[in-house]
Nucleic acid binder design. Structure first.
Lengths: 259, 259
DNA sequence: TAAACTATGTGTATGCCGTACACCTCGCGT
DNA sequence: ACGCGAGGTGTACGGCATACACATAGTTTA
């Protein structure tokens, strides 16, 4: 516990606990982290600088360094705070598949609320309390399934990748739109038009066929972009879980070899 | 073609073509891009700054701005250059599955060679020649398959997500190790030890069981880390493609409803 | 009550970054 | 011979993270 890297130690200690009798907080670690998370949510992680953050709290840049020894440490704290595991996951569906779907949905909700989470280096999160908890819950969901523990880990990693990818798509889009001067619909229309101009039969035959066949015409009766995003999410999730199901089935009936 | 965003225009124009008879190149766009790619490959994208790049070429910072109007534009050029589609993909396996596997493998090779590609904003790549070509090849691989064009797009996007996720894991790891002062094995051991310390039965029962059950004990007879990474790659890819297979099967035999 | 200590906040300075802008200097076409 | 324009440079600005010396005020101790 004592040789933990600087930032992690704070996360695993049972709160500051006010060393002697020092009063007069003024600033507070949690206030800082909270403000930073809010700022990142609203204006993107890129706009969170030590000086802007301090100013938004009514203090000077350097005051933050009394609470955090480096910006990376602040990011780690923001990360762990945002990834707090909801209590829904204390009680699980019995079946592995609905359980995993729930696990994914909850993570998706978090990533949706804090798109910048996707940006934080994965190795940074390794020893974080929230991360270990998520891992634990995921493994519990797969508790009764006939896979090796290593394979279970692989499955969770695969799902995590999918979730992060979805988050990334959303975050990149959001950020691009933020930088655009045109209104969102117009910008998107512009890109679609551009694609249609560039995709010619000689260079991109298959793509052209797909575009004409409705690659950009959206499925079913959607209007609501939210519904579209949900449908896309479920499409990918279902493919992956079907693949996992296949693996499990094969484990259960190992006799049938391919002819 | 004329209203393309600044950076894209250059990518779609048939090469600079030396306006009149200006000689004395000295610097060259392609030399710059090449050097930037090399630097990013070797020392990470973070170490590519305009001044360091210029210095490595023997020029001053500002000289680069004669060839590129902004650093983002340079990144776009690096991106397109690195993503050039290999000619292997001009000729494809007939079967969709081996074709897609090939498609993925080739992308993986590129991402492996240029880990920083993963960092470039996805929306940035949309209109890029290389990106459209990759899309075209992927759709061709799925040419004979009974899915809607929209679904084909979804499948390709899903696979792309997986590829990017793998690249991201590798890139983050590499970068972390670069920042470490300890040698790689030692650092990795340190993390493993840390995990084992933190994972206690009361807070993480399922995780503890998994750790004891071999979550970190690697599968089969691997020693070579490369072989391990390959195995992980194939595991994920197989799950996803199995899921796609299921969908296709269901399309071919739509009669059988679940009882 | 006075003195010392210390947690908290500030101001200044350094060295990076991207890039705007004014300049300089060639070699070519006139 | 001249001037024009392309290619290269130097300087300067504002923003970034952060090191370090300093100011201040409240508690603890003498």
């Amino acid at each position: 516990m004592d040789e933990l890297p600087e930032g992690l130690r704070r996360l695993w200690s049972p709160e500051g606990s006010a060393r002697q009798g020092q009063p007069r907080p003024g600033l507070t670690l949690s206030r800082i982290v909270e403000a930073a998370v809010g700022m990142a949510d609203e204006q993107g992680l890129g706009s969170v600088s030590m000086s802007r953050l301090a100013r938004s709290l009514g203090y000077t840049t350097m005051s933050l360094y009394r609470y955090v020894s480096t910006k990376d440490e602040l990011l780690l704290l923001m990360h762990d705070s945002a990834w707090r595991v909801p209590t829904v996951l204390d009680d699980f569906p019995e079946q592995w598949r609905p359980a995993l779907v729930l696990w994914c949905r909850e993570q998706r909700t978090i990533l949706h609320r804090h798109p910048w989470l996707e940006r934080i280096r994965i190795t940074e999160r390794v020893g974080t309390p929230s991360q270990l908890t998520w891992m634990d819950r995921g493994l519990r969901a797969l508790g009764g399934v006939p896979l090796t523990e290593y394979e279970k880990g692989q499955v969770l990693l695969l799902l995590n990748g999918f979730l992060f990818w979805q988050a990334r798509l959303a975050a990149d889009l959001q950020e691009s739109l933020r930088e655009e001067e045109r209104p969102p619909e117009e910008a998107i229309m512009g890109v679609a038009d551009m694609i249609k101009t560039l995709v010619t039969a000689d260079r991109f035959p298959a793509l052209l066929r797909a575009v004409e066949g409705g690659l950009f015409a959206l499925p079913q009766d959607w209007q609501d972009p939210q519904a579209g995003a949900d449908a896309d999410f479920l499409f990918g999730l279902d493919r992956i879980l079907d693949g996992v199901q296949d693996l499990i089935d094969r484990r259960l009936a190992p006799a049938a070899l391919p002819d």
